[in-house]
């Protein structure tokens, strides 16, 4: 079985105060798929992603990456397979320089120094951030921070990329660059976002979450064109589908 397959079955999670966050989530993501997870605030998107990266262990139900169930014992394997990019890049970057931050994961994998160096260079060049390798992360622009955060995950050569709101707080140009970048990755991608236009651009499949459960799961073009479904789940049509002349023009061009 491929390590790229993600299986979630009857996943239930309650916060310590008893508030239900996930109520029986089930889906399966195949090798190489790009899947968007959309939903209103509090729908359970980030909690679901935290389960996929092993930051939260399932209270009930199953989360498996390939044939490996996500448990405390399997965390080293899970973290090697799943690269997580958090919503706020400031939460992801904590070393004195970008280079050291990108090397953090490979070093924890006990790779030899030359291999660490090679992976750092590879990851930074993939996100066009080689020029900032010596800079301290907190002095970077929002787009540079995002690029560096993605590089920190790529340097671990993960099979699956899990991204939480990757376009949040990015200017339109940087957002466009990020979308191009995401198109270039052949990894299995799971992207939670409110940016439905980006989901439309990057993901072939979309899962709609509502109050901790899967409300719909299907082809992105169909899901994001379903006004009633979007309204019921607290979402709106992507800008491109709202007869916006500018976006419509862009659509025609593409």
């Amino acid at each position: 079985m491929s390590h790229h397959i993600v299986e979630v079955k009857d996943l239930i999670y309650r916060y310590p105060d008893g508030t239900p966050a996930l109520a029986g989530v089930t889906f399966r993501i195949e090798h190489g798929e790009s899947v968007g997870i959309v939903g209103a605030n509090g729908a359970g998107k980030s909690t679901l992603l935290s389960h996929l990266s092993g930051c939260i262990i399932a209270q009930s139900g199953l989360v498996a990456i390939g044939e490996i169930p996500v448990t405390k014992k399997t965390l080293p394997d899970i973290r090697r397979a799943v690269g997580t990019i958090f919503q706020d890049p400031n939460d992801q970057l904590f070393m004195p320089t970008v280079e050291e931050d990108v090397a953090f994961g490979p070093l924890n994998m006990n790779l030899p120094a030359e291999e660490v160096e090679r992976r750092v260079a590879m990851a930074l060049s993939k996100v066009n951030a080689l020029h900032i390798r010596k800079r301290p992360p907190y002095r970077l622009s929002g787009g540079e921070k995002r690029a560096a955060a993605i590089a920190t995950a790529l340097s671990m050569s993960p099979d699956i990329l899990v991204l939480d709101e990757p376009t949040a707080a990015l200017d339109p140009r940087t957002r466009g660059l990020l979308i191009d970048l995401l198109h270039g990755f052949t990894h299995t991608k799971i992207i939670a976002s409110h940016d439905l236009d980006m989901i439309l651009d990057v993901c072939k499949r979309t899962i709609v979450m509502y109050k901790g459960a899967v409300m719909a799961d299907g082809a992105t073009e169909q899901i994001l064109a379903d006004i009633e479904l979007l309204h019921r789940s607290g979402l709106e049509l992507p800008m491109r589908m709202q007869s916006c002349p500018k976006c419509a023009g862009k659509d025609k061009e593409s």
Binding site: C55, R79, F86, D91, G105
Partner: peptide, 13 residues
């Protein structure tokens, strides 16, 4: 806590 999660996600032991 969020930073710690990010560190754990990258194999911090």
């Amino acid at each position: 806590l969020r930073l710690h999660q990010a560190m754990l996600a990258r194999g911090f032991d």
